[in-house]
Design a binder for these strands. Sequence first.
DNA 1: CCAATTTACATGAAAAATCATATACATTGA
DNA 2: TCAATGTATATGATTTTTCATGTAAATTGG
Lengths: 161, 161
Amino acid sequence: MPEKFIDNYLLFQLALASHTFSEEFYQQLRAKGVSPAKWRILINLFDCPGMYLTSLAKYVLYEQSRVTKLVDQLVSEKLVEKKTSHQDRRRVSIHITEAGTKLVAPLIEQAKAHEASVLAKLSPSDQNNLKSILKTLASRHIKDTQIAELEFDEFTKKQQG
Amino acid sequence: MPEKFIDNYLLFQLALASHTFSEEFYQQLRAKGVSPAKWRILINLFDCPGMYLTSLAKYVLYEQSRVTKLVDQLVSEKLVEKKTSHQDRRRVSIHITEAGTKLVAPLIEQAKAHEASVLAKLSPSDQNNLKSILKTLASRHIKDTQIAELEFDEFTKKQQG
DNA sequence: CCAATTTACATGAAAAATCATATACATTGA
DNA sequence: TCAATGTATATGATTTTTCATGTAAATTGG
């Protein structure tokens, strides 16, 4: 078998790894009746409740209009709530509900267990290398898109004030 | 900013990296009128012409019925051809055409340049670490799904015989 | 050899995602 | 102040993708 371009092409390698392991976990999610898209939304809101819709969209890597629709479904399932901002009445902050939290909390434990099973395929040093390299790449991305800091500052200000 | 679960969650990190850099390149593709899905099909066929449809689907990480439809579109654009197998008349091998090759060849050069720009964000040792770690993860996947070897053996036998 | 099962691919209806654009609000600068 | 511009989200039509299933061919086991 000759070396193919694809097999050494970083974007393909990343897509393959992401796809393979995500699909593995999605099986577990579906078994509990949670779609991958809703999981992504919920886990992000669990981590950072009150996120504005557009920021949420950037975090979950979905288009804004798609997130609008997913959030509306989650609202109808009482798993999240929308609140329009007082400072800027165009903006909508999304909060995970008690029920939403009850749903995701055990899934996070499952996710951690699954992640451990994936990392177990690698040596301890490779485990660290992989995560740190991905963080390097991610940090540049976050810096480029200027989401996290701004959003979080507003969030903490509100909590403190 | 406290550490969020998500930001240290491997599946999210992989999805973020894959998404970010793929989207970057997809901009270039779209500028040339090629959709990401068709690029994936074409580049795989370029690497391994004559692949059977189901194997192709596994390689490009798309569902079989989706690949059937994408391939049919590509056939109508004269970029690929379908040939039913003589050994097994259920199977269809897909071949990239001259026109298809002409279309992808320069895109591969663009992809290589883009990949270099992504890797440039990392130190040389991290570049090697990342690729080798991803290969480790991928090799297990390929082994699990038993595609490549089988498929290629048949292909080379045909060429030799 | 043949019924039962499995495999490869196709198809059409249903669901999800995207795209273009609308609406409502906010900001900017003359 | 207010017109022009920009931003946040919503909406509906279109396109994509999935899901369930169909058809035809191959394989398997009696």
